[in-house]
Amino acid sequence: MSEFMERFCRLREEKKYGELIAAIPYAQLMGVEFSEDEQGDLVFWLPFYERNVGNTVLPALHGGLIGGFLENAALIHLMWNRESQEAPKIVDFSLDYLRSGKAKPLFARCEITKQGKRVAHVLIEAWQEDRAKPIAVARAHFLLSSPAA
């Protein structure tokens, strides 16, 4: 197991959400936060930061930033919910933008649609003020093991 996976498992055990984000440099740069809700499901959020803006006139969050936030949420969600010796590898990522991301906090939840031996499929939904009005939906495939494993 890599040092990163060992650290991930320990921080998951201790539910140290902030330290876990700090272990993933780009998640830390975006400013991602997350925790478990009452049901034990993960919810991710991103407070509004000027550095994440992609349209200064509206203003709106950068579409790529929204993508990175969702992709990162899917990865953590998957790692949080399975026992593994190695980090999953993203294969493809598809994202539909439904509304512009306002200068407000952004939230996301994920669902593992299918987890096979080699591949997992994860759905991700992002919203701001109203969960019934998603601003983006995405899905990702992850490879779960390397051929040698």
Binding site: I24, G67, A87
Partner: peptide, 24 residues
């Protein structure tokens, strides 16, 4: 850059950075 990394054990850039680069 170190702060763009997604997996600290490999040093590989986070996929989200690629997403932003492709989008832009």
């Amino acid at each position: 850059r170190e702060d763009l990394v997604g997996n600290p054990s490999t040093g590989v850039i986070h996929g989200g950075v690629i997403t932003s680069l492709v989008d832009t």
